[in-house]
Design a protein around this nucleic acid. Structure first.
Lengths: 262, 262
DNA sequence: CGGAGCGTTGAGCAACGTCAAAAGACGTGG
DNA sequence: CCACGTCTTTTGACGTTGCTCAACGCTCCG
């Protein structure tokens, strides 16, 4: 399944000359949602980055209840938050959020210190780590920068709300169509290259955990989506045949993602 | 249905003498989750409060897309966030979050400026309004206070994640049991007086919007809960007969609420 | 007394889960 | 090259959950 992950976009932007030049983070890593941050904040973050780490597919970054003193920015790959509940006998698990490149995966941990859920990589992934102490310093010096980081976590929360809506109100077909539409939108901002082909390296069991369905039913829904001519989900990517139809099946309205033209 | 709303707890605490003495907010209003804030921050908030407003039952506080420059702290009553979607033909709507006294209802609007969802009162409600400009000043002066406000919104996000889990993984009975357990926990912290009797002034149609069920099925689930001996939901309140059983039906684990003993 | 709003109940049905079997994809070792 | 095991997807049969529709009761209020 592996499937190639999309490369970084060729930004051809001038590499900012700054004191952060020795940072492990390059200008190529500034893509997706972090691009919405002020350039100065980005430079501060570059300087604050303590380490860039490679994660194996399915490797856990943190477990519920651990004390965290670093937060991670996803550079490449896909990561997920897992809420688990219930007795050891039949542990139920749901994926409650997906991160795409350019998302802070666990910035929530900065004010919370401990998280209530697990975080893991769905694919091979690259993350940049930021010690909370360094982020604290950034926020102490500028409430404006603090506000921007807060805002990122609030967009996450808005996505959470949409996921509640999705799993409580949408039927299986609409639900999966909605999820694909969301990933389409978010991966485009993260620098997905081809418009008709979406890198979506998820197993059907992952889709099941995301949409709250059984894996068997996910398979059936994927067939329906294929036969309806909306999109084909296969081999770790989604081919979007008819975006308008896909959006219509999902009643998709992207405003909850707070797209940059705010 | 109206149903009496629980009174404010008799805190018998010394009323802090401060420059915020002329505030519309009294020490009695400091209950629920805001109690977790530093006393100094509370005094600053008292001074920052521009107005205390009374809301009618079902009155909307704000609609999706509006530009907001105040945020509200819920003092009495229950409020909800509604995510609505879809064509005018059949507008689907879900309640994606409930606020209890002591919760900031829309602090999310401070970094976001616009919200993607509607906010309204489920019951008669009292809210304290804080102009964003005043909150900005508080945050500029102390990154520590800014952090605490941020933290409140992150607890909201944690609750969001649990609601995703609930609606995507729990069956109807467990789902309602889980919701009642959550409200039990949160209303206790908000100063609910009686341990066996929970003020829950919601219609079954509200419960349906919360749990993602049809009103008819909510009725059946309530009967099941009653007959199982766990709790009786009636006339705007829930009588908890067997809390342990209720929690067991829901597999309830309150850690996602980040209870104060952190 | 009549109506509106809310809750309850039953019957029938659609959506989805569970179980089981099989097929395709892929790597591994002989 | 083939045989084999594992992982993933697909399909069918069948059971269950929860929705829809419709009717009825209850309470409050005019």
């Amino acid at each position: 399944m592996k499937g190639e992950w999309f490369g970084r976009p060729g930004l051809s932007s001038v590499t900012a000359v700054s004191k952060a030049d020795e940072s492990a983070l390059t200008e190529q890593d500034r893509r997706g949602v972090v691009r919405r941050l002020d350039p100065e904040l980005w430079q501060l973050l570059r300087a604050a980055c303590s380490e860039v780490r490679q994660l194996d597919s399915r490797e856990m970054l943190s477990k519920a209840g651990e004390k965290l003193d670093v937060s991670a920015l996803l550079l490449d790959g896909l990561m997920a938050r897992y809420v688990r509940n219930g007795q050891k006998s039949e542990p139920q698990s749901a994926i409650v959020s997906i991160s795409v490149p350019g998302d802070f995966v666990d910035l929530h941990a900065l004010p919370l210190k401990r998280l209530d859920h697990d975080i893991g990589a769905l694919t091979e992934a690259r993350v940049a780590l930021f010690p909370h102490a360094a982020l604290d310093r950034i926020m102490e010096r500028s409430s404006h920068h603090a506000r921007q980081l807060w805002r990122l976590t609030m967009i996450d929360a808005a996505i959470h709300r949409h996921w509640i809506f999705r799993s409580s109100r949408l039927r299986a077909l609409a639900s999966v169509a909605d999820f694909v539409s969301e990933m389409d939108q978010r991966l485009q901002e993260a620098g997905e290259i081809r418009v008709d082909r979406l890198s979506l390296p998820l197993l059907q069991t992952d889709l099941a955990e995301i949409a709250g369905l059984s894996p068997v039913h996910v398979s059936r829904v994927c067939r329906e989506l294929r036969e309806s001519g909306a999109c084909t989900i296969r081999d770790g990517h989604a081919e979007i045949h008819d975006r308008a139809l896909l959006h219509q099946l999902a009643h998709f309205d992207p405003s909850y993602l707070y797209p940059p033209e705010d």
